[in-house]
Design a protein around this nucleic acid. Structure first.
Lengths: 225, 225
DNA sequence: GACAAAATAAAACATATGTTTTAAATAAAT
DNA sequence: ATTTATTTAAAACATATGTTTTATTTTGTC
C-alpha cells in the first residue's frame, strides 16, 4: 500500500515505517472528519508518531492530504473501472448497467476503496486545491463515457442538451447514496447498505433510467415521422 | 427580516441595529465558507461590529448559526411550498411536477432563499448539531409527501421498496444541482443556472421520472395479469 | 435632567493548531 | 569501528480563534 514505500529504507523488525503508519491513519481521519477538522496531532497520536513526523515526511498537512486523495482515487478505479467486465462492442444497455454498478460500488464499497467516496463527497461541497485534479481526472472522463452510452441509447437525432440532462439524471441517482448517506441513516435507521443492497440499488437505477431514456427515444420518433 | 427584530429597541436613525447586521452578514459568510471556516472576526469585521457582539447578542457562534439555519429554512419553504400552486385533488402527475419544480427552485433560487440550499448542502456532508432538526422538519415531510404522490402513480400493488427507490430517484435528480454545482461549473463553465434553466431542469426531471414510473407500473400489470 | 438598563468597544484570555528548531537515536556506508 | 545520512523525539514558535472581562457609551424611563 501507498506506493512510495520503496523510497524508504526498510526496517527489519515488524513495525511498519512511520511514513506508512501516517498514511494509513491519516486516510481514515481525513475521511471521517474532513481536511479542516482533522488535526495533525490527532493523526500523529493515533499513529503513535511524533508531531513533527508529518512535516518531515510530507512537507505539510495539505500535501499529505493530496497524496492520500490521489492514492485512494487510483485504488477505487483500479477495483471498479468504468467498463466493469464489458467490451466496447457490447450493446449500450449492458454498458449502462456496468457503468452504474461500477459507480455505485466504487462509491459505497465498504473496504479501503470507500475512502475515495468519503473524501470526494467533501470535495464536492467544499473543494480544496485538489478539486481541479479530481474534475479532470475522474469526473470528466466519467461524464464523457456516459455521454457516449446514452447518446447511443437515444439514437442519432437526440440533442446534445437531452444527452447532457440524461447523463445528469443517471449520475445523480448514483451519487445520491453518497451525498445523502447521513440523511438516509437518520431517516431510515434500519436500512443497511451491504453488498446485496448495492446490487438492488444499481438494478433500480438502471431500470429507472433505461425506461426513461427509451421513452424519450420513442417520443422523438413519434414527432419526427 | 429576521423575526426577533421587534425584541430590540428600534433606533430612530438609519443604520440597522447591530444584531440584524450580524444576522445578514453571518448568513452570507456561513453559506460561503461553512461553519468551521467562517470566523467570528470575519463576520464582525464585515458587519462593522465589535468582536464581542456575537457572544452578547447570540450567546455563541453555534447558536448564531442555528438561528440563521432555521430562519433560512422558513424563508425557503414560505416562498416555495411543496405543493406550489396545486390542490390535493389534482392528478398525481401535476402534483409531481409541482413538487419537483418547488424543490429545484427552493434549492437553486438566487436570492435570499438560496441561503437555505447552500447551508443545507454542507449539512448533508458534515452534519452539525442542527442536522436532526433538518431531518425531521424538512427532509422527512418532503419524503412522506413524495411517497404519497409516487404511491398513487405506481398504483396500489407497488411494494414499499419500489416506492422508496423511486422517491430516491426523483429527489436525487433535484439535489444533484445543489450537490454538484461546483463540479458542474468547472466541467461546463459556460453553463448558466438562471430562471429559464431551472424550468428546463424541472421539466426534464419530471419527464424522465414520469416515464420511468409509468413503465414500472406497466411492467407490474403485465406480470400480475 | 437623573438614573437604570442595554448596547458597544477595547483588551485580555484561554486554547487549539500547523510548523519549525534543535537535539538525540538509528541505520547505512566506508 | 568510524563516519555520515536519515529518522525520530521533545520542545518551542507563531498564529488563529471563540470567548470573557471590564469599561464606556448609548438608550429608555421616571
Amino acid at each position: 500500500m501507498f506506493s512510495k514505500a520503496e523510497k524508504n529504507h526498510q526496517k527489519t523488525d515488524s513495525l511498519p515505517r512511520t511514513r506508512e503508519r501516517i498514511l494509513r491513519v491519516a486516510a481514515e481521519v481525513f475521511a471521517d472528519l474532513g481536511f479542516e477538522r482533522a488535526t495533525v496531532r490527532e493523526i500523529c497520536s493515533r499513529a503513535s508518531v511524533n508531531i513533527a513526523a508529518i512535516n518531515y515526511h510530507f512537507r505539510d498537512k495539505e500535501n499529505l492530504y493530496v497524496e492520500i486523495l490521489q492514492y485512494s482515487k487510483a485504488l477505487a478505479f483500479e477495483k471498479y473501472p468504468h467498463d466493469l467486465g464489458t467490451k466496447k462492442e457490447d450493446p449500450p444497455e449492458i454498458r449502462l448497467r456496468a457503468f452504474i454498478r461500477s459507480l455505485v460500488l466504487r462509491i459505497l464499497d465498504d473496504d479501503l476503496s470507500s475512502l475515495f467516496g468519503r473524501l470526494v463527497s467533501r470535495e464536492y461541497i467544499e473543494p480544496t486545491g485538489a478539486f481541479d485534479m479530481l474534475v479532470e481526472e475522474a469526473m470528466r472522463p466519467t461524464f464523457v463515457l456516459l455521454s457516449e452510452i446514452i447518446g447511443e441509447l437515444l439514437g442519432g437525432r437526440a440533442s446534445a442538451m437531452r444527452v447532457h440532462m440524461c447523463c445528469a439524471s443517471v449520475i445523480s441517482q448514483c451519487l445520491f447514496f453518497l451525498y445523502a448517506r447521513h440523511a438516509l441513516t437518520r431517516l431510515f435507521p434500519e436500512q443497511k447498505f451491504g453488498r446485496t443492497e448495492m446490487e438492488v440499488i444499481a438494478d433500480h437505477i438502471t431500470g429507472f433510467s433505461l425506461s426513461a431514456i427509451k421513452d424519450f427515444r420513442k417520443a422523438m420518433k413519434g414527432e419526427k415521422k
